[in-house]
Design a protein around this nucleic acid. Sequence first.
DNA 1: CCAAAAGTGTTTGCTCTACACCCATGG
DNA 2: CCATGGGTGTAGAGCAAACACTTTTGG
Lengths: 238, 238
Amino acid sequence: MAKMLRRAGKHVYDHPRPLVTVDVVVFTVREPTLRVLLIRRGKPPFHRRWALPGGFVNMDEPLEDAARRELAEEAGLTDLWLEQLYTFGSPRRDPRGRVITVAYLGLVPPERIADAAAGDDADRLKWCPVRKLTAMAFDHHQIVHCALKRLRTKLEYTTAGFELLPRRFALSQLQAVYEAILARKLDKRNFRRKMLALNILDPTPATRRDGAHRPARLYRFSARKFENLRDRGILFPF
Amino acid sequence: MAKMLRRAGKHVYDHPRPLVTVDVVVFTVREPTLRVLLIRRGKPPFHRRWALPGGFVNMDEPLEDAARRELAEEAGLTDLWLEQLYTFGSPRRDPRGRVITVAYLGLVPPERIADAAAGDDADRLKWCPVRKLTAMAFDHHQIVHCALKRLRTKLEYTTAGFELLPRRFALSQLQAVYEAILARKLDKRNFRRKMLALNILDPTPATRRDGAHRPARLYRFSARKFENLRDRGILFPF
DNA sequence: CCAAAAGTGTTTGCTCTACACCCATGG
DNA sequence: CCATGGGTGTAGAGCAAACACTTTTGG
């Protein structure tokens, strides 16, 4: 049972304290592959093994802020979509002692993955295809699995998919995101019809002129239109 | 940045450590009302205010074990369905300093709520209707809200509902659970048809003889039959 | 025999699925 | 003119919603 001590004029709880970290599973889709951001550790434990970006939480810092700070420091990534995933706290998950980690799920569009994995960092960072994960530090493999499961379900009832695309995108790009995450092919006609029927996409005048082929119409996600659906419960039926 | 110290022959990370607690939102349905288990605090901070059961995590103890231990100690509740909910870590959520809490969602059938809220504890414990929550300690109001949201969505795609019922139950009891949680009426015929169509209920020879009315058939949830659905994705369409 | 909960089917509209061909463009 | 991805419609099946009366029991 916790007991109170008086020390330096402040009440302080005398209870053993674990270390607390945050770790972030950042996904991106570089067609046609879903990838996770990994960092090679520079010190023990698990020296030189691949790990998720993350680190210790500061005493005055909200958990999500800690996750964002670590991502910025370790990978130069800022302003991405983040949500809390799960807290991993097995007593032996870290050889240094009791370390509880609050894991976050992050999504970035592929245009921004250059930020991470640039220049000097090229051998410290990698965007690893989720299908080809090697042995990772700590229980990070388990964390990635948990994140993937969450991402798949979020895809079905939220607009998480759009976080993996540039502001303007072609429907085929959106479909590629869904296919990469769900790991199966979708029917093009059904996908388009259902997506457009949700009425949350605004067509733009622009088209995509990247290939040697017919240019695709670009769309924008409309947060405003999405609000209309929100309360009567949307379901992305894939 | 964390630095290593050598102390007593072991590597120990020199980083400020928050306190870590667990808190549990235990729901039950006493027809027709969804209720949460609350405990009146016996010391500061928030002396004599209602709070969720919970407490500090021991250093060698998994998080879920801590949640179960606290429930057993504080409310005499054991062997219930539990799952991790969310981790709350705002720097100022506890006046004693940095306390990060890992919240759990728990479900018990109403036959067992006598265990908690018995004899001596009758004024320390209460099963409070979710609709009538008073001012609570810490950010516990927010935690209950988060739990309720989660419970509602879990109801739709898991068998969580059965955790709130005795092993044998009438369909009208099951419907009452759904209605209490979703806070709306459901059509009896549609509810029964869809529930039975899932083919996860075994009828028993027994009937319910509690009222002055026609006795209802009792059913048992069949985990075995449920396994058959599991992978091809169930959906409870309510 | 009355009150109260248990139990039961059908129709209608919507949504999901499966499926194949023409179009526009750059090279 | 050809290769490549962009774009389009329909028919059939299964699911969800709305809706009201009969049955069984205890008192």
